[in-house]
């Protein structure tokens, strides 16, 4: 009985991807993470103030990345597709969205990763989570470059 209670109480955190975890084959296929690149996965939403500041900075970092080695993938977790579309269009109009975005209106992708906050950035290499950055970082563009340099 004790085990059941502990499993229930801790269950929500048990099924979260952490550093060193292997991404499920279904998710690798869904997001296209099968290559040899380092994948930087950013979870964002139109209603998330910190994400609104961070996405343009990630796009700035993406300009100078070697796309043969690194790919940034955005996951828009807006439940209303019209909100996601409007947000992405506004970003594109400002030149602040230059990476592939996967819409996740059912929240199936983010539920599998199960981050503790928004925005969250996952570095995935060889289908394994290498690093996680949770919460807004002021100079996330510089942080991405610095992290990728260490991963080479």
């Amino acid at each position: 009985m004790k085990n059941i209670i502990w499993t229930f109480l801790l269950g929500s955190q048990l099924f979260a991807y952490d550093v060193g975890d292997t991404i499920s084959p279904a998710m690798v296929e869904h997001l296209g993470l099968g290559g040899e690149k380092v994948y930087v996965i950013d979870f964002f939403a139109s209603w998330c103030g910190s994400c609104q500041k961070e996405v343009p900075l990630i796009a700035k970092a993406n300009v100078t990345l070697n796309h043969n080695e690194v790919e940034i993938i955005g996951i828009d977790v807006d439940k209303k597709p019209e909100n996601a579309e409007a947000f992405q269009k506004a970003l594109q109009a400002e030149g602040a969205l230059n990476f592939r975005v996967v819409n996740d209106p059912q929240n199936l992708v983010i539920a599998e990763f199960n981050p503790v906050g928004m925005p969250t950035l996952y570095y995935v290499k060889a289908q394994k989570v290498v690093k996680i950055i949770t919460g807004a970082v002021d100079a996330i563009d510089a942080q991405i470059h610095s992290d990728l340099k260490k991963m080479r």
């Binding site: 939403a45 929240n107 539920a111």
Partner: peptide, 9 residues
């Protein structure tokens, strides 16, 4: 969950 806070935001 953090991604369910649209209304709270």
């Amino acid at each position: 969950k953090p991604w369910e806070k649209e209304t709270l935001a």
